[in-house]
Design a protein around this nucleic acid. Sequence first.
DNA 1: AGGCAAATACTG
DNA 2: CAGTAT
DNA 3: GCCT
Length: 595
Amino acid sequence: MALHLPPVYLLNFRLPTSEVLKLEREIGEPLVRDISEAKIVIGKVTRKSRAQLEFKSRGVHTEEVVHETDDYKAQKRRRIDEGKTREVITVDSSTESEPELDLDPKANSPGHSIKVLKLDWYFDSVKAGALLPTEKYLVYEGRIVEKPKAAPPEPRKLLRTESILSRARASTPPRIQSSYRHNPRRSHSPNIRSKTQPRLLHETTSEHDIADNLPPLPSYLKSPYSCERPTPAHSPNEAFIAQLQKLKHARKLDRDDRGISALAYSKAIAAIAAYPYTLTSAREISRLPHCGQRYVELYQEWKETGHIKEVDEIESDARMKSLKEFYEIFDVAEKTARQFYARGWRDLDDVISHGWDKLSPNQQIGVKFYDDFQEKIPREEVEKIAAVILKYANRIREGFHMVVVGGYRRGKDMSGDVDVILSHPDDDATDHVVEEIVWNLAEDKWITHRLTVSTTNSERGQEPVSWKGSMPKSAGGFCTLDKALVVWQDADQARNPDPKKKHNPRRRVDIILSPWKTAGCAIVGWTGGTMFERDLRKYCRHERGVKFDSTGVRRLSDGAWLDLEAGGGDLLAKEKKVFEGLGLEWRDPTERCTG
DNA sequence: AGGCAAATACTG
DNA sequence: CAGTAT
DNA sequence: GCCT
């Protein structure tokens, strides 16, 4: 192909990688890596907005070239006015940016216009053996402009006054831009319009520097571990996060990759949720750990259009709807949900009518109480349930301590279930009491079903001397961390119904018994959001050489049990000691909302 | 390009 | 062992 | 899907 192509940039959007590679090989020389260096951009794009988005997501800002003077002026004026409202960047007085002289389209400078063409232009040209006129293929023509930059948003007020952020801010010089802006060296990667600028202190010129004029990235957001960051329940970016949640959910349901891609979303979401400012630009999001190109694109699309196409598609997808309905049955997860769908079932009624006896006992419970379990539990009710459990525990033996963990402890108004941890300063008091507690609660009709009751978690490698002797029966263990997952119903109300209350929903309740010595670990292990817990384990393993779980902390090398909680008075003090012992800054439970 | 992703216990 | 749960 |  003897085509003499101008500098071309190939968009990979909606192109399979194989195709991209093929095209790249085929085009060869004229290909450029930086979109701003291109004269022509080709790709599977048909909409102007999409084309613009492709530029933005690469940090290049363009304005449409309209071949009509008046229009152009109007547009330009608007843009300048926008610029006026920013207090930022005075810089460009010295620069090019205003394309008064928009002739002279020197590549790589503002004013240089770039045409986005449908892929067919390329194919047809190859066929014709010559470059064809572009009109028929033109999707968008843009001219590079200085980035319109929003003023750094005010940090959102955090719920916790003692959060790291406020402390950091208190001890940080007031908004000196250079404190976060200057980025000596390496600010000149392939860069549009960077004619080396006067290096007046906080002057910047390069795209990067300008773009980097963003709120400072809180240092905790440099950590890849969500357990090292305060993550409040509410984020200034909740609306965007909600979109990501939907994508994550969809990945989980319809992709068989061991949840890996869903996990990627979880990580990104956890990072964004810890970001205390309202996002305003693509580059801003890409500073966050686990937020790569994918999230830049999603953010761009969402910001521009207020929608994410893929999310919309998911929401109107009937199969997804069915899978979701199945997935929400207790004891049905993604595999089973897909299996149900594959059998031709489409909703809960199908499950009941066609498959009731194929369900496991727990799944039957899940179906029976489907609606109840969907209902969220108000804090008040969580507290009542917990109080009943504690009463029954103390009836067996005085002196139990209890902490309600889970979402409740993270401050959620409504919980999906109730998780309580019980412990007792007397070592042997926690042994095998779950069964007894559950039995008694069941007898008094608080518990209607037991989903699982597990006992005996034996520990190894700890104080062999003492526990061997002191542990009477129970082959196995010194340290038992027993738990029961049960279906709960308010017995008071069952006995004499309050007419004001419509019904008496069943609740899922998790009762966990922890030995006193490691109760701090149990509390840590059952309080955090999912990502918090995963990252905590990962952090322990990789940064501290220990293995954390809710039964304790062990040295990786020899498995020796480490007592991090010695001398901690009550349960909460013990929890704090665990953080200390792991070299982690304390996080209030309400800052563990990593989802 | 390839490695990696938290850790365990229970049920059928 | 596969699947689900915490 | 991100990280090295």
